[in-house]
Design a protein around this nucleic acid. Structure first.
Lengths: 107, 107
DNA sequence: CGACAATTTCGATCGGCGTCGTACAATGAG
DNA sequence: CTCATTGTACGACGCCGATCGAAATTGTCG
């Protein structure tokens, strides 16, 4: 029957919908900051399980959801795996220097 | 007896003590973001009472305390008035582009 | 089909933070 | 000295969010 509609559609704001406060709130957490740093370091897509942060998988899911809703990361589904990547282009276009400033800081 | 030790010494981290996460947490609040924007717009020192944000004076004091502890603003006492200013130099030196990126955003 | 792997969802808990009102301290003017 | 001004300290309250464990969903492999 057509399809069991249970797939979460991966909500993601358009570039215009991203707000600086949302981005700041998303980045203002040590775990999420670590996630963003790992995504930036890898330079490519990273699966949820490949992230090394000191929290449970379910908590990682929660943080990724927040990062996605804030427009910081993009998600792509492939099989049972979800690949995440930084929305560098959009962020740099909207808030030039912000992401670089955050990533450049080692403390 | 000597002196009634009641003057709060205005704690303020040195440049080396400022962390990016602390700054992000400090900026991740609409009221504090508005305060920072007003300080940046004025370009100079602003007294606590001259800030126009939709909260009580005591709440403003609280937010300014957080911004000060995070190293985002500097405070200078003069009589009963406390002048606050943005620590642009330090922030730009530590996280180049961060503050500009935040301030440039209109959303 | 059945077992396993990758993630999400759900419900619950628990601490932290933003907010307020009031009381209090410090300073300057009359 | 008294009073007004400016700001802080303190206690309280309510809410949001970070965290976890367990169960459910989906896809892959044998």
């Amino acid at each position: 029957m057509a399809k069991s509609v249970t797939l979460p559609p991966i909500v993601m704001p358009t570039r215009e919908e991203i707000t600086v406060e949302g981005v700041l709130r998303a980045l203002a957490d040590p775990v999420r900051l670590a996630i963003v740093r790992q995504l930036a370091a890898s330079g490519t897509e990273v699966s949820c399980g490949a992230l090394t942060v000191p929290v449970t998988k379910s908590t990682i899911t929660h943080h990724l959801s927040i990062l996605r809703q804030a427009g910081v990361v993009a998600g792509r589904q492939e099989g049972t795996t979800r690949f995440n990547s930084l929305r560098r282009n959009d962020l740099d276009a909207l808030f030039p220097g912000l992401l670089d400033g955050v990533l450049a800081a080692q403390r």
